[in-house]
């Protein structure tokens, strides 16, 4: 296989082609979603590292902060799968507008709980 014969050039090539094809074929809305997902993931990682390395006190604040990242990530990922044109066949009944409204409502409820729990 290609990675065996020229691993470094092969992986970099395939990574570059992956990136290229992502930039070219993905719609700007999905890119926006992906940026948001990346931000949430980094925020969650930072908070988890802080909890492990520094302090988990007050624990309710950690749960709220980390939970808001995780919950928002899940909701956003759901939105992404529902508005992705490639999944159109699977979500015949869900229009992108409806998907966004679900996402927005779910997020507002999530944030309501997060701020109540934050202390």
């Amino acid at each position: 296989m290609a990675p065996k014969t020229a691993p470094s050039s092969g992986t970099s090539n395939s990574f570059q082609s992956l990136l290229k094809s992502y930039i070219e074929t993905t719609s700007s809305r999905l890119k926006l979603i992906d940026v948001f997902l990346l931000f949430l993931m980094l925020s969650g990682i930072i908070q988890f590292a802080y909890c492990i390395l520094v302090t988990n006190f007050p624990f309710n604040a950690f749960l709220a902060g980390f939970g808001s990242c995780v919950g928002q990530f899940v909701l956003t990922a759901s939105l992404r799968s529902q508005v992705n044109p490639a999944n159109r066949a699977e979500f015949k009944d869900v229009s992108p507008e409806r998907a966004f409204a679900d996402f927005a409502l779910g997020s507002i409820v999530l944030h309501f709980f997060v701020y109540n729990f934050l202390g």
């Binding site: 930072i46 709220a64 997060v114």
Partner: peptide, 21 residues
């Protein structure tokens, strides 16, 4: 509490990012 500010910042930034999104 001062040690909880990273968590507060995380929750607030998530909300702000949600609104911006």
């Amino acid at each position: 509490l001062s040690p909880a500010w990273p968590y507060y910042a995380g929750a607030i930034s998530t909300s702000v990012a949600f609104l911006a999104f």
